[in-house]
Simulated assay, not measured.
Amino acid sequence: MDRQQEQESDNSSEVAYLREDQLRAQHHRPPAIDDAIKIGESTARVAMLKFCEAIINTFKEQYLRDPTTDDLARLLAENKERGFPGMIGSLDCMHWRWDACPVVWRGQYNGRYGYPTLILETAASQDLWIWHAFFGMPGTNNDVTVLDYSPLFNRYMDGTAPPIEYEVNGRQYNLPYYLTDGIYPKHAVFMQAKNNPVTAKERAFTTLQEACRKDIERAFGVLQQKWRILAMPARMRKTSDLLRVMTTCIILHNMIVEDECGHNLPVWTPPIEENQNFPEHEQSVEDVRLLYRIRMGRIRNSETNVRLCDDLINHQWMRSGGENI
Rank of each mutant, 00 (worst) to 15 (best):
M1Q: 10
N11A: 13
S12E: 14
E20A: 12
A25Q: 13
P31Q: 15
A32D: 06
A36V: 02
M48D: 03
K50V: 09
C52D: 08
K60Q: 15
R65W: 01
A77P: 06
N79K: 09
E81F: 06
G86K: 15
S90T: 05
A100D: 13
P102E: 03
N110R: 12
R112F: 07
P116M: 04
I119V: 08
A124K: 00
Q126T: 01
G136A: 10
T140H: 03
N141F: 06
N141G: 01
P151Y: 02
F153C: 07
N174L: 04
Y177N: 04
Y177P: 04
A188H: 10
V189L: 04
F190K: 05
A193T: 06
A193Q: 09
K194F: 02
N195G: 05
C212Y: 03
K214P: 02
Q225T: 15
L230V: 01
A234V: 06
S240R: 02
L243M: 09
V245M: 13
T247E: 02
C249D: 00
C249Y: 00
V257K: 01
E258M: 03
E260Y: 01
W268R: 12
I272E: 15
N277M: 07
L291A: 12
G297N: 14
G297C: 10
G297W: 07
R298S: 12
V306P: 02
D310F: 07
L312T: 05
M318H: 05
